[in-house]
Amino acid sequence: MNSPGPTAEQVQLEVYRKVVTIRFAELRIREHVEKEGFGGFWHPGIGQEGLQVGAVSAMQPDDYLYYAHRGLGYAFAKGMELEPLFGDLLGRRTGSTGGKGGGTVHFADASRHVMGQGGTLGSSFVMGAGTAAASQLLGDGRVTVVFFGDGASGRGTWHEAALQASVWKLPVVWICENNGWALSARFTEQSPTEHVADRAPAYGIPGVVVDGQDAMAVREVTLEAIERARRGEGPTLIEAKTLRIRGHYEGDRQPYRDDPVLGDEIPNDPVHRLGEGIADDVRRGIDAEARALVDRAFDAALAAPRADDSVIFEDVWA
């Protein structure tokens, strides 16, 4: 916006801090899932944190976020604290959903406009467009950002949402995290075109392909798309190319995988790329703080009471 914002260095530091925090969170969650088991499916987002944080860093606090199921980068970048996020993951009363969204997380923070997540892929295409329609009606100047996977791009809801949002010039930005896989389905075998973004021209909207391992590049294209949306010029489809480092869920042995199973190696690691311009001692300081923050929050979530039967009848009706 018009106020003198933070410098480019400050922005990069902040993006780095968030990305590295989520990296530590990923590792801590993995350790927990491996050791303790888990009452749900954890879909690791390791390696995709950069694009998530980079994109969300382009949003204003009042903008609306519909995140996807791969990791916590989106919500953390939008300002949610780690403890309620871990609380949701672990089915704790202290989770942002009070224990309702446990397992495969459905966290939310209405005050920060983290709008939640559906269990059915592709539902956020139409919901996000509707949220943007509300902003257009109210004239509140907000933009809605919707994340989705390459697999979810196959849903028909994409077509219904994209067509209507383009015709109405709704302030919505769609960000595809193309990590090459939808569970066992290879993107190249399920898409007739090289890019998801190739579909954008059919709806009369820009389709942008960006390197998803480059957080700052994702931030740049998202900023542009958001500003376009805010000006009333309609939606943009951004496709961030990335990689699914781990299985579909933690514990997935990926027998179907015909590209190298990556395990721990993160090609083009967004953490390293962001860290390149940062002085070593500064970076080490940020890392240590991030790790401590993650451990404190995770330990606190573990110590919190589990949601008990009393939640079952809560929140069915307003």
């Binding site: 509707g130 943007a132 509300a134 809605t144 809801t157 219904e160 067509l163 109405w168």
Partner: peptide, 23 residues
């Protein structure tokens, strides 16, 4: 009073998203 395309998932799903945003 908005005429939509033939898109029932948008009509209802869009309404859901619009309700969350204060309408």
């Amino acid at each position: 009073v908005r005429d939509t395309a033939i898109n029932e998932t948008f009509i209802v799903g869009g309404a859901a998203g619009a309700a969350l945003a204060g309408t």
